[in-house]
């Protein structure tokens, strides 16, 4: 039996990798993937806790998060395509028309 703390540690590590990726990468798609990594850290947390606490709420929550993440991906990639069409790039350094 794998103890709960291992799951929680893995979830926290996944989440932190996601945060670091979001803050350091400069490509919109990679940044978006980093957010997905963070969400999966949350999912792992919820599912592991749900199992050990013997309560189904965490698993139900996970289903909602997965569903919303899919909808979010659809909108995010749509916006990224619109951006690519107008700029020919999805690099954050080229997204600098708005400032001040």
């Amino acid at each position: 039996m794998i103890p709960l703390s291992w799951y929680l540690a893995l979830a926290a590590i996944l989440f932190c990798i996601g945060v670091c990726g979001f803050l350091t990468r400069r490509n919109v798609i990679i940044m978006f993937l980093s957010i997905e990594l963070m969400l999966n850290g949350v999912n792992l947390n919820l599912v592991a806790l749900s199992h050990f606490l013997d309560s189904v709420r965490g698993q139900a929550f996970t289903f909602f998060i997965i569903t919303v993440a899919a909808a979010e991906a659809a909108i995010g990639l749509g916006i990224a395509i619109a951006l690519y069409r107008s700029r020919r790039s999805v690099h954050v350094d080229t997204i600098n028309h708005l400032k001040g």
Binding site: G18, F22, I35, G41, V42, N45, L49, R87, L98
Partner: peptide
């Protein structure tokens, strides 16, 4: 507008992920 949309989207999704991790700890 697409620049504004992508900035809003990335920041909003990042904030949601932070909020969710906080919620999962509360649940735990």
């Amino acid at each position: 507008t697409s620049e504004a949309a992508i900035k809003y989207f990335l920041m909003g999704a990042f904030a949601s992920a932070l909020l969710l991790f906080g919620m999962s700890l509360l649940y735990g």
